[in-house]
Design a binder for these strands. Structure first.
Lengths: 129, 129
DNA sequence: GGTACTACGAACGAGTTGGTGCGTAGCGTG
DNA sequence: CACGCTACGCACCAACTCGTTCGTAGTACC
């Protein structure tokens, strides 16, 4: 997360915006705030986000140390993403961002409604489980 | 502020980000949160922000109903900007954005330091004042 | 009066995020 | 086994914010 930030900022908001830059990072983080998610779950939860943007932004967030990726197997097997400990400090902020959006939605005629996230395929549990 | 927002958003953060879109709007709002400011004061408080961007973003914010502009006289005379009543709901969010930035600054080697804002020229007070 | 300041606006280009379309190696399940 | 799914990546383009440069009508102050 430290890359290229060692300069002067004239208020805290400038720094925050630079770290959380872009359309999708805060949205991804906000969803992960609720718990670890599969790539496909994130995809379903954020319908307007393309595969390309999702994978790129996830990689950015990983490099920034805000998201960790857990994967069993190689290509084709699911990856799980979760907020890092480092990102814990963001939880309150993400909540506030969400709350404000929910609050102004009626004023601006917007509809905020979570997408259905289908239960994804899971590795068959052990028989003795 | 209602322009083009009457569609579905999949979480509150998406809506918030769309309203506060861009590099400079939240920064401008954060400064105005502390009290009304002259154009020139804003300019001095946010050194990396160019005239062009400042005037454009202020106009956007005005159109969105988040900032009001007060001006005596025409070109050349100072304009004062302040948050609207409508923007009051943003105060908490702006504070949180600032607080988080201040909090992570040491971790990322960033320096957050407010710019000096010089006392601007004021209309000479009435002699009897 | 003269000059620096004030608050913009026009014209143009840069840069980065975001979007579209397509493809792939491997997995997981019926 | 076959096929749909998974999680990406490549190539290319779009779009919009942002940045640079220059200029202006009028103000404010010395």
């Amino acid at each position: 997360m430290a890359a290229g930030l060692n300069r002067r900022f004239y208020c805290g908001v400038e720094l925050t915006l630079e770290i959380l830059q872009g359309k999708w990072k805060p949205v991804i983080l906000a969803h992960l705030k609720e718990g670890p998610m599969r790539y496909g779950e994130l995809r379903a939860a954020i319908p307007r986000l393309s595969d390309k943007m999702l994978s790129e932004r996830l990689r950015d967030l990983e490099e920034q140390g805000l998201v960790s990726r857990f994967k069993i197997g190689r290509r084709g097997s699911p990856a799980t993403y979760r907020l890092t400990r480092r990102a814990d400090s963001l939880r309150s902020l993400l909540g506030t961002l969400n709350d404000w959006g929910l609050r102004v939605a009626p004023e601006v005629g917007a509809i905020v409604e979570y997408a259905d996230v289908p239960a994804l395929r899971r590795r068959r549990p052990p028989v003795a489980g």
